[in-house]
Write a protein that binds this DNA or RNA. Sequence first.
DNA 1: ACGCTGTTTAGATGTCTGTCAAGCTAGAGG
DNA 2: CCTCTAGCTTGACAGACATCTAAACAGCGT
Lengths: 126, 126
Amino acid sequence: MSKQIRRLPLLDAVCCEPLAREPLDSNQAATLAPMFKALGDPVRLRLLSMIASTAGGEACVCDLTGPFDVTGPTISHHLRVLREAGLIEGERRGTWVYYRVVPDVLDRLAGILTVEPSPARAGRAG
Amino acid sequence: MSKQIRRLPLLDAVCCEPLAREPLDSNQAATLAPMFKALGDPVRLRLLSMIASTAGGEACVCDLTGPFDVTGPTISHHLRVLREAGLIEGERRGTWVYYRVVPDVLDRLAGILTVEPSPARAGRAG
DNA sequence: ACGCTGTTTAGATGTCTGTCAAGCTAGAGG
DNA sequence: CCTCTAGCTTGACAGACATCTAAACAGCGT
């Protein structure tokens, strides 16, 4: 299986000051934008959420196609977008393909969006 | 200025469990996706970052058009997308228009992406 | 009125999303 | 080994949506 999953190697290089700390340069923005863009679709957001919230941390594609009104190939396309954005990784085991999230990448994106100076965000009673 | 900024009222209703805690329903996803989509463009990401990292918390449009290779109307268009997504608000004062971020919205998006139960935010398990 | 700032409109060009059809991989059965 | 079936991906395409620019418009101060 030479067809390896392709992670964006750039995130380590460009990443991770919060948006509000200093302006992103165009290189950072070019790296981050595709990740947020991948999140910018309701189906993909739900797919990611279903994968991330699965008990073992992995979800079989066969369990992901059910809850949506779209066809199998469409799910497959969306999973590909998430994968190429570096947000999830996939692996075939026997008949089935399993996806899991890349927690570090999501946490970094979260860190980039965070405006409040981390600890004292208690003010927000949900 | 009767031209009030229109915030998405839905965020309060649907929001804010982390993605990884339980699957988003289609209503939540439909509310969140446009916000992430607004972040999914390099120019908008830089605009948001420039606004968020400005000293007084506000940036004049006149300062935002300079660093980009695109024309004024294009910047205006991107600011509109960010505004309609609820990520920023704008206000005209005299000749100039100033934008500022809506920190709570960005922090919520960050909270939704967070996977690690980081100690600082562990308290708000819903 | 005039110039400066920023937005809106109209329209060309490009990108995304979804579907059907076809392909590939793995396991079961003959 | 061959065929059959299930699971998932890829390719080709139509329709919808985004991005960008130039030109016209609107608000403010002189």
